[in-house]
Amino acid sequence: MSPRRLFTSVAVHTALTIGAVLTVIPLLWMLSASLMPQGEATAFPPRLLPSRVTFEHYLDLFNRLRLGRSFLNSTIVAVFSTIFSLLFNTMAGYAFAKLRFRGRDRIFSLLVAALAIPAQVAMLPLFLLLKTMGLVNTYVGAMLPLMATIYGIFLIRQFMVSLPDDLIAAARIDGASEFRIYWSIVLPLARPVLATLAIFTFMSAWNDFIWPLIILTDDDKYTLPVAVANLVGEHALDLELMMASSVITILPVLLLFFFLQKQYIAGLMAGGVKG
């Protein structure tokens, strides 16, 4: 290695490492403080690691503050949003990609144009609508905006357009029904994009804040972000407890990302829309 190359290598790796350290410090500190005995994270002189590891705050959150309930709510909302989103968006995305019907391209371009409308614009009337339907403070109300999305249809359609037409035509000649073609031929071929859509939907359902905050009015129904935002108001001084509640909220999505990184990044590139 030439001296010049060695110097570049050292400089690049130093910069990369500094960036990585600054990026993980907030997350590592969250984890570390969540395991400290009460009051240790705010003591002087400051500690970076717990003097002894304790899970008391996690137990306290689950036993006394019933955060397990919110964890369950978040899971229900995220899982069912994902299932419905997979079903409805793939059906529509497939039809827009491969089936010929009148007005197809016009409807699709209208949908794409509507992609630019920020979700918040719909929220006030949507709340009033769901109120008259009796869906305020229900899981269904929390899930509705995620069950079928323009972005989801768009993502699926872009992928399915490139599937070979011959395959579908051949199945039709063999007498397969349209539903069978969708279910047994198209969906298996679309597995990579299904994974992407599933991860994106699950994560946005899990991380979403403003809509659950609006539509879920009872703490029995709160999802984790709403519950945590509420807790920080009441337990602002209890740093270790709040860090534990953040860990509980973040860990599932972070693990999901670590294991399904490839699909997630691929989707980011394909969609080119903020996840």
Partner: peptide, 17 residues
């Protein structure tokens, strides 16, 4: 992976941190 990790985290939770 490290640089991307904050992107997938829950805003409310990291805002608390």
């Amino acid at each position: 992976t490290i640089y991307f990790a904050p992107v997938v985290t829950t805003i409310v939770a990291v805002a608390v941190v």
